[in-house]
Design a protein around this nucleic acid. Sequence first.
DNA 1: CGAGTTTGACCTGCGC
DNA 2: GCGCAGGTCAAACTCG
Length: 258
Amino acid sequence: MLNQIDRVERDLASSSYGLLLNFLPLAFERMEKGHLFNGNCLIDLNSNPMQNPDESLNSEFEDNFTGHARGFSLKDTEELDRLISENKKLHDMLATLIKNQNDWVQKQCNSGEECSRKRKHDDSNFVEKKCCNQACWEECWSHGTPKGIKPNASKKVLVRVDPSDMSLVVKDGYQWRKYGQKVTRDNPSPRAYYKCSFAPICSVKKKVQRSVEDPSLLVVTYEGKHYHHYHHHSSLQSETAGVSLQARFPVTLLRVLI
DNA sequence: CGAGTTTGACCTGCGC
DNA sequence: GCGCAGGTCAAACTCG
């Protein structure tokens, strides 16, 4: 399944028209809402604000596309037709992808596979969580913290960035103040330490470090939970277990390990 | 001038 | 107690 997602992502990336990327979040928001939670989930941070999140995927998709098309002055109408066709094709791929995933999730649930939580490595605060369906997800994380797990548990997020971009900045919707940077033993890339700008009222911290295995990935570890809203207005706002994501990335997909 | 970043010093926990 | 590594502090610096 992740291979399929990667393929769609690759196809989108290879598209010469960045505006097409605006539609992927519509599908990924569905995933975030539970359609695709089975351990790893993908969240896109590229999108524009969700206007009508309750509408069907199809209508959202088309409305957004035509909306962008109106503001996008293409002289060549054939090119626009080609874009629409390409867009439709990608939409169909995503629809199939979501359907397959739902089928798979249903199959896993029917087979009696338990939703699971487990600790990872020796870090007692780090939590890797798996939910088999949307109901489980919402039940477990309804208050921003999974039941039975410490409120200050860490949430680890992988952010895909341009490998040539050496900055350790992750725009996740909140405003952060960097208070330190350190080179750790197991990673030649420095680790940056951030506090929420609302500190000391909000004690959320995050650490950002480039992945050793894949330099195009930033490993972001959030600690604590925000007790306030975003610092920036509007935009797609998704609260995932205290890890808040806002759709303002250039071209980035996230894998959230919760 | 204020807010944010940099960076060396300092603190703390842990293993030996 | 000592050394190491991760985390934090805070003065200096940068930038808009």
